[in-house]
Design a protein around this nucleic acid. Structure first.
Length: 1050
RNA sequence: GGGCGAUUAGCUCAGUCGGUUAGAGCGCAUCUCUGAUAAGGAUGAGGUCCCAGGUUCGAAUCCUGGAUCGCCCA
């Protein structure tokens, strides 16, 4: 037995969870717990986690807390299991969002204005802004207990990082997979800039556009025309083909003395009711034909047959079912033309594009040279020209929503711009095979959203005509664009150029030139930077400046076992990681990926600043604490389903779980200290009572469940099983063992302490603060300095007793039934009753017998009587076991159900118990029912206060004798005295002298049970009747007056 | 327009292989317990399992179609 005045340090009065957590945080820092937890696993097997880098140019929100706590829990768990889990933080620094932010700040609105402002100054602003909120991020990261090394993060803008990215691009170039092609982008011809999809979304307007039906003569078939439809006649000079749907049925129609070909389904809509098909043909048949191109006179393209090709995107939703293809002016057009070999996407100049960057036709378009393509007059003239040449069927207008430049309101055009690509289509099969080996949570992403995306892979458009990004390391001879050098390191560039590379960013890198290796001309860098997704996808090696240094570290930490981000990363980081590592290392860089859902407000709306429904993480933390926040995210639902979230919802998880846990902890500390007992002298577990062994068995079952679920990355089920255990521990074990704690029973204290210490370890990855607080207070001198330095508990099967757990469940069920019966009869528990009658047999009866004392205490009943044959209380009824009988009986099942209900339950039960089958007649056939085929249940007989469940029932003898009545009154008196103690501000362990006065009935009951009253109220001296009727505290008990005088003894 | 997911009590969510009487917590009402608790217990009200078909002896569960919401893509 401990000799200190305090066995365990008690929780501080009035300290809330947020304060406790801050205290724990300080201790972690002092001791260096995170660092220690890593040192402990020096040389151990690695568990590799990759941090997907956030951009720190804004304050972190609640959705960031979600991903950060899920990034934390599994590395903590694996660390406790003995793995070494290094965690390196990272920051994503480049990219268009950063630039847009600075543009807004500086009031710039075009690339032209940025260049006037100066790229050097602009990029400097970007550089400063990306880490603007890094302190906020670090503070929040630390406060929510996300353990990651914030002191040595990787930054995608650092020279080392950029160099590693360059190295990888050169490798890809050496593989022949880096090429210059075109990319069809939404383009503003006035601003001379391409727009991101985000910008495009800003500028949709409803406009009227021309709707033109054009006839294209079929080669060698006089007077026969393909009928095409377009809303952008300016694209017709760029026409190189016509696409048809392979599954679409086409028709030849006589119309105005000509034969027109169009989709069968669209004849009426395009040509009117009178038009009739004369014959039909399939899209595939059409592809055997050609038509006379080009549509407009072109100075470099003499008339020649043009191909008809098939395209899956062709529908009969509008138009004619024949789609004019101008690969320079449409994404579909570009892809389908490339796929049919009409041009070679890897050969820049094979794409036919007669429109310049300023949006005007070049010299090739005869008669329209220099005209702006979106000019209204031009459109009229183009239509008139078609009409004059007999190619126009009709021209109308068409109202639709069309994107405009959000800056200058010019209608955007889709336009093929020069762009650098990575030929990811070549590694598509490898990526698919790699994906097959990745574990996805939730699983449907793997072959759903992500798998589909991989199946439809197109080459990665890598370059961006922007400023703040990793510069594309391609140098081109200004005299011969075919001479190109891709640079893979600073040393290489320094050697070629003789210049020192201080900063690889624009504009400095643009100044670095060198003489062409061929001997004539100067090598200059292309102007583009690369897609920021490529940066983050390179983090497995670039974070280590691989291959320039840290080769061993990289080898050890590739691939990652675990990554975790929100669902929107499927086409972002999840893809870029897979693509880059498949290119570089021919395998995926991650084995398990957890996708998290979105954070919604309680109405199911996405949280956004504009809606004003954002919940700031600090509000939640200040009010409820980080553990509550974490616990809510982990256990409230499956994390990929999205969270309907508010500060109040988090509060529920505190009340329900953390407070129960905390109160249980407080209870143990209170009585361990009061009794000066730390449990060290408890008997071995095997010798402790059933209740103790039950709690420890349930604990071990919980350890097993938690381990099993966390191994499957299922924090939800794992956490819920801990929740269930704490509920049982608090509301059943502690509640049922209170007297033993008052007496400081070493077994009880050791048991509860053991449960709480182990639970603290189980909880350490979930709620690291409260877990550590409880652990360090209870672990004692043999424990570690922190729960996070301990090994995760392993399930101990020797302490598990399935039978005991089952028996306890039966006993609990009996208590619940009896409580329900009391409530029904409106007899409160304070009133003792004589007898409980339990209908049970076999194992159930044994179970109840085993916990009889507990049950009697819980129910305040004197004795239990068992009834095996329940006839006097209830009757048996039979119910079919559908699962067994359904497949056997099929259509006769409903009849059998009736027949079974009509059987004599008691007799059938008797037979079944003796192994005799029960005969049943259904549809003229005799059926033999065995015990497996039916369920026997109890139905109450009239006139009994009975509660039942299955074959199990409890009845109460409600007779209250005079003696029981007086005993009940004595309990009422105790209750009143306890209240008086509380009112007088006495501590629970204070001894008192007690004087009672008032109504004689009450005093008589108290006298009869004087020992009980004195014992319960810790009265050393009891003077029953010694108080005047108006002395002390006057209480009303059962309508009678009782005066109570309590005084603390010295 | 396409793909994926979701829809169960007032709210937040479970619901296994299809098994006939769909559960929990919160909230509400009534009662109750208290020598740990911001607590606990009991009872009750509260359900067209989104809708319509289908498969089946039997559907919240499987299939088809539709509706609504969300995400991604166009």
């Amino acid at each position: 037995m401990a000799t200190d005045s305090q066995v365990f340090e008690p929780p501080k009065q009035g300290e809330g969870f947020p304060q406790i957590e801050e205290r724990v945080l300080r201790r972690w820092k002092e001791i260096g717990v995170f660092e220690k937890s890593l040192e402990r696993r020096e040389g151990a097997e690695r568990f590799v986690f990759y941090e997907g880098p956030p951009t720190a140019n804004g304050r972190p929100g609640s959705h960031h807390v979600l991903s950060r706590v899920f990034k934390d829990i599994f590395p903590r768990y694996k660390t406790m299991q003995g793995y070494r889990v290094d965690r390196k933080a990272g920051w994503d620094c480049h990219g268009l969002p950063v630039e847009l932010e600075i543009e807004k700040e500086l009031g710039l609105s075009s690339k032209h204005e940025i260049e006037n402002y100066g790229i050097a100054a602009f990029n400097q602003k970007c550089r400063e802004s990306v880490l603007r909120y890094v302190e906020d991020w670090n503070a929040l990261t630390e406060r929510i207990g996300f353990w990651i090394d914030l002191d040595d993060p990787y930054r995608t803008m650092s020279n080392d990082y950029v160099e590693s990215v360059w190295w990888s691009l050169k490798e890809i170039h050496n593989q022949g997979r880096l090429y210059e092609g075109h990319r069809v982008v939404p383009y503003c011809p006035r601003c001379g800039t391409a727009l991101s999809s985000h910008e495009v979304a800003l500028g949709y307007k409803d406009v009227e556009d021309p709707s033109v039906y054009v006839k294209l003569p079929v080669t060698g078939q006089p007077n026969t025309h393909l009928l095409i439809w377009t809303t952008t006649p300016w694209t017709l000079p760029g026409n190189v083909a016509v696409a048809v749907g392979p599954e679409v049925t086409y028709a030849k129609v006589e119309h105005g003395g000509e034969t027109l070909i169009l989709a069968n389904d669209l004849i009426e809509r395009v040509l009117g009711e009178d038009a009739k098909a004369t014959s039909t043909l399939t899209g595939t048949e059409l592809t055997a034909l050609t038509y006379d191109g080009p549509v407009f006179e072109l100075n470099d393209r003499p008339p020649a047959p043009s191909p008809i090709i098939s395209g899956d995107f062709v529908t009969t939703g509008d138009g004619t079912g024949l789609v004019h293809i101008a690969p320079a002016f449409g994404e579909d057009d570009y892809q389908v033309a490339a796929a049919h070999g009409i041009f070679d996407p890897t050969q820049q100049d094979t794409l036919y594009n007669p429109v310049g960057l300023d949006g005007t036709y070049d010299d090739r378009v005869a008669g329209f040279e220099g005209r702006f393509v979106k000019d209204k007059d031009l459109t009229e003239e183009l239509i008139a020209d078609l009409d004059r040449r007999g190619l126009l069927l009709k021209a109308q207008t068409y109202e639709h929503s069309y994107p405009h430049c959000w800056r200058c309101s010019t209608p955007l055009i889709y336009y093929a711009k020069g762009s650098w690509y990575i030929k990811t289509t070549e590694i598509r099969e490898q990526m698919l095979a790699g994906n097959d080996g990745i574990s996805w949570y939730p699983p449907h992403i793997k072959h759903g959203r992500f798998g589909d995306w991989l199946e439809n892979n197109v080459d990665w458009a890598l370059s961006r005509e922007r400023y703040w990004g990793t510069p594309l390391p391609v140098w081109i001879n200004d005299e011969d664009p075919d001479e190109q050098v891709v640079i893979g390191s600073y040393a290489e560039l320094e050697q070629l150029s003789g210049q020192k590379i201080e900063d690889p960013h624009r504009p400095y890198i643009d100044e670095v030139t060198f003489p062409a290796p061929s001997g004539s001309g100067t090598m200059r860098r292309v102007p583009e930077v690369i897609d920021a997704w490529y940066d983050s996808g390179s983090m497995p090696f670039a974070q280590w400046h691989y291959p320039f240094e840290n080769k061993e570290i990289f080898d050890e930490k590739f691939p990652a076992q675990y990554i975790c981000e929100a669902l929107d990363q499927t086409r972002g980081w999840f893809y870029s990681l897979l693509a880059v590592s498949t290119l570089m290392f021919e395998k995926p860089s991650y084995e398990t990926v957890l996708c998290l859902g979105l954070i919604l407000d309680p109405e199911g709306q996405k949280m956004s600043k504009s809606r004003g429904n954002v919940v700031a993480p600090w509000d939640v933390i200040d009010e409820h604490g980080a553990d509550a926040f974490r616990w809510y995210y982990f256990t409230s639902k499956e994390p990929w389903a999205g969270y309907r979230f508010s500060t109040e919802t988090v509060g529920e998880s505190v009340r329900k779980f953390l407070l129960t846990l905390w109160n249980t902890f407080g209870f143990l500390v209170l009585y361990a200290n009061a009794g000066d007992e730390d449990g060290a002298n408890a008997r071995p577990v095997a010798e402790r009572n059933d209740f103790d062994r039950w709690a420890l068995s349930r604990l071990q079952s919980t350890v097993a469940t938690v381990t099993d679920r966390l191994d499957d990355y299922d924090a939800t089920a794992a956490g819920r099983s801990i929740d269930d255990f704490i509920d049982e521990l608090s509301n059943w074990y502690v509640r049922g063992s209170r007297r033993r704690f008052w007496d400081a029973d070493p077994d009880a204290i050791a048991t509860l302490r053991d449960c709480l210490v182990t639970v603290a370890q189980l909880l350490a990855p979930f709620t690291p603060f409260v877990a550590d607080e409880i652990y360090t207070k209870l672990a004692g001198p043999g424990g570690e300095a922190s729960v996070h330095l301990t090994d995760f508990p392993k399930p101990d099967d020797d302490k598990r007793d399935q039978r005991l757990e089952q028996d306890m469940a039966t006993a609990r069920a009996a208590v619940e039934l009896a409580r329900a019966a009391r409530a029904q009869a409106k007899v409160k528990i304070r009133q003792p009753l004589g007898e409980i009658v339990v209908v049970a047999s076999g194992e159930e009866r044994e179970a109840i017998g085993r916990f009889e004392e507990l049950i009697l205490g819980e129910l305040n009943v004197k004795s239990v009587r068992y009834v095996t044959d329940a006839d006097e209380l209830a009757k048996f009824e039979l119910r079919p076991n559908f699962k067994a009988l359904g497949p056997r009986l099929g259509k006769n099942m409903p009849q059998a159900k009736e027949a079974i209900a009509a059987l004599d339950g008691a007799k059938a039960n008797e037979n079944l118990k003796n192994g005799k089958p029960v005969r049943l007649n259904v549809a003229g056939e005799e059926i033999l029912l065995t015990a497996d085929d039916v369920q026997v249940v109890l139905a109450p007989l009239d006139g009994y206060q009975l509660e039942r469940e299955g074959t199990h029932a409890v009845a109460l003898d409600l007779t209250v004798t005079e003696q029981l009545k007086r005993e009940g009154l004595a309990r009422e008196v105790v209750h009143a005295v306890q209240n008086a103690r509380k009112d007088s501000g006495l501590a629970v362990e204070d001894r008192i002298t007690l004087k009672l006065g008032g109504d004689e009935t009450l005093l008589a009951a108290a006298r009869e049970h004087e020992d009980y009253v004195a014992g319960e109220t810790l009265a050393v001296v009891a003077d029953i009747g010694g108080a005047d009727s108006d002395e002390g505290i006057v209480a009303t008990v059962e309508g009678l007056e009782l005066s109570i005088v309590v005084a603390k003894t010295v």
